[in-house]
């Protein structure tokens, strides 16, 4: 039964550092070589961990959890451009079916590699259709803040899902 369980490949790969190691080196916390576990003499550094969501492993320049959470949160809008290194997401205009005379677009900035509450800034723009032309209109102050809070909640969920594995 256990082998059948393994064969179904639904489990998490256990990393080598999750096994007991009786070498003296494994008992020392940290490395004189900094964040690197030993000196890289050849090949590509694979040591980056996704636990902090620092983003280096996936080739991101910003926090991976905030990046993913922002994409998830703004997914109801059509995407115009996304720069994972600069941390900028720009959506295209979108008119809700219920209110075809107004349209929205959003711009999100992810500030850095840290998962922190001020790590994301979202601006929402709104236009109304007046006399056959779209003109800028005010947006409730709380709209952008609500979206940011939704991003942070989603990022926290993603992080806890990863930590639980």
């Amino acid at each position: 039964m256990l082998l059948a369980l393994a064969a179904c490949s639904g489990g998490r790969i256990v990393e080598n550092d999750e096994y007991h190691n009786d070498a003296g080196r494994s008992r020392v916390a940290g490395r004189m070589s900094g964040e690197q576990d030993g000196l890289l003499v050849m090949g590509t550094d694979r040591s980056s961990k996704s636990g902090s969501g620092a983003g280096a492993e996936g080739g991101l320049g910003v926090n991976a959890y905030l990046w993913r959470a922002t994409l998830d949160t703004l997914s109801f809008l059509p995407l115009s451009s996304a720069d994972p290194f600069g941390g900028v997401i720009i959506t295209d205009w979108y008119s809700p079916p219920a209110t075809p005379s107004e349209r929205f677009r959003a711009t999100a900035y992810i500030m850095g590699r840290q998962l922190r509450s001020d790590g994301v800034k979202i601006s929402v723009f709104r236009q109304e259709l007046r006399g056959g032309a779209w003109v800028d209109a005010a947006v409730a102050q709380a709209t952008a803040t609500d979206l940011e809070n939704q991003v942070l909640t989603r990022a926290r969920d993603l992080r806890s899902q990863t930590a639980a594995r």
Binding site: A23, V28, D37, L39, M42, R46, S47
Partner: peptide, 14 residues
């Protein structure tokens, strides 16, 4: 390719 490989040297002294 070496891009697929990582070779490291580590040490310990007490």
């Amino acid at each position: 390719s070496h891009r697929d490989l990582e070779v490291r040297v580590g040490g310990y002294f007490r």
